[in-house]
Amino acid sequence: MNSMSMAQVASSKESVSQANQEYLLQGSIIASAVEHLIHRLRGLCDNVENVPETFHDLEVCMSMRQPNQVPLQVRVRRALGTRDLPFQLRYIGQPELDRSRPTLVRSSIDVGCTSTVLEFLTELGCRVDFEYVSQGFLFRKGRMKITVAKIFKIIPGKQNDSEPVCNSYLVELSVLAPNGQDAIGDEMRIFAEQLKPLVHLEKIDYKRLGNIP
């Protein structure tokens, strides 16, 4: 069910000390073409014979504001629908947008934790910044992870029917790797090339998207 958290928890356990860089490419696909993309990804990725893994997660972004400092942001992710899976706590650093690199690179630390993490963070002084539900499919190819997910806004008062942010699915191609492993970026670029023209995976600096309505 919630293979996303499981995979990330598993990978984070063995790699907290080494794999601390996330290489990331992002794109989107219009809902009507998602079937087509899933079909192609099933052919391209590992475990062709299995049905694609699905996930349905809630992510809460919390931040700790201190005077005269950049707010510290952490994300807590949990699976919806099952209660016995661990929560996942994640720190994402500032993206490095080195032009010579084929992907966006940012530091990323993932830890599995219990469900009390939210209370713990609140007591530390963190406040909820925003939250969303992401529901979709997960694929793997080697150490690359590909997610195709719809992002839902949480509407207060109406917990059962959430409203999608837009009609497209978010497509992310990411790899967690130790610092300095730049060869993986080229591998990802080649893979992204194979998904064209369905999806255009690019490195996107979301800090620059601030003025988009």
């Binding site: 794109g27 989107s28 219009i30 992510e59 992401s134 992002i151 497209s168 996107i204 988009i212």
Partner: peptide, 10 residues
Amino acid sequence: DTHALVAAVG
């Protein structure tokens, strides 16, 4: 849509 989604998640 890509920008909207990335900005929303980020």
